[in-house]
């Protein structure tokens, strides 16, 4: 990887640099939150967090810990910039997105600071591509104030059990209604579409459910159009933690295992719809 050392010859200090032997460890997880064009990137010594928001009601975060990167240097306490995620993903997969080629694409990502572009060096089999992506003024991201002490209900289950459910969601329904309860029906996903309603019940002793901590019965509705993008994260993940707090806010945490067996997390927060009418059952 000769090019990596060459790029260092530039004397301008980078506030943030990182390198990865397999770019797919980054691109795959970014795809899980790619439902809007723009994303905010936060780099701290812990790692990189990429945030995408929709309609001020939904926030998706992808966390890539510093340990995932072969090299992760940050000169300031935190570095923030906004970037076109579509362009970033296009660049990251410039040598192709499929896992088939045996040689992984290596990545070095550099950022000089405010007002500078994000520079990507991608190398595969001796071919190097340099991409410079304009960064944008960072916008304030939503603070959902989702605090674990306020969590009322929490279920951890294997993603396998939800994948089919989410991919088959009746999209003619405006809402996805989630019921979590210490008593029957324990965990229920409901849609109310043109053709009628559909309920999906998971008993709490199902083998799919790894942890079941429900303290009170909660029924909340979430806009299905907002939650549908989380299917991408679900598809990548091996486990998912579903939590609701006392305000009915929903947190979906996906545990994603990358190609090198390391664990990353993708998180979705979603506001409930305010009025919950008596649902037909």
């Amino acid at each position: 990887m000769a090019f990596l050392s060459q790029s260092q010859s530039d004397d301008d200090p980078y506030t943030f640099t990182c390198s990865l032997d397999n770019v797919r460890n980054l691109s795959n997880i970014l795809k899980a939150i790619h439902f809007k064009d723009h994303a905010a990137c936060f780099a701290t010594t812990n790692g990189l967090k990429v945030t995408v928001e929709n309609a001020k009601c939904l926030q998706a975060n992808a966390f890539i810990q510093a340990g995932i990167f072969q090299e992760f240097n940050i000169q300031e306490e935190s570095v923030i910039f906004r970037i076109n995620l579509t362009v970033l993903l296009d660049c990251l997969t410039i040598f192709g997105a499929s896992a088939v080629p045996a040689t992984p694409t290596a990545l070095k990502m550099c950022y000089r600071g405010y007002g500078h572009p994000l520079t990507l060096f991608l190398e595969e089999g001796g071919v190097v591509t340099v991409c410079k992506i304009h960064t944008q003024e960072p916008e304030e991201t939503l603070d959902f104030d989702f605090c674990s002490t306020n969590v009322v209900n929490k279920i951890i289950l294997q993603s396998e059990g939800l994948k089919e459910a989410f991919s088959e969601l009746d999209m003619t329904s405006e809402f996805l209604q989630i019921t979590m309860s210490p008593a029957k029906p324990y965990f229920r996903l409901s849609t109310f579409g043109n053709a009628g309603s559909a309920h999906l019940d998971y008993p709490k002793d199902s083998d799919l459910i790894e942890a079941f901590h429900c303290t009170e019965t909660q029924t909340n509705r979430y806009k299905i159009s907002l939650l549908k993008p989380s299917t991408k994260a679900l598809a990548l993940s091996c486990k998912v933690s579903i939590r609701t707090d006392n305000r009915g806010f929903l947190s979906l945490q996906y545990m994603v295992r990358n190609e090198d067996g390391q664990i990353c997390f993708v998180e979705y927060y979603c506001c409930p719809d305010e009025e919950v009418q008596d649902a037909e059952s």
Binding site: G161, A195, G196, S197, A198, H199, L200, D201, Y202, P203, D205, S206, D207, L208, E280
Partner: peptide
């Protein structure tokens, strides 16, 4: 499998 029940109420 796993005790999951899907109920569809169709009009």
């Amino acid at each position: 499998k796993y005790g999951v029940t899907k109920t569809h109420n169709l009009s």
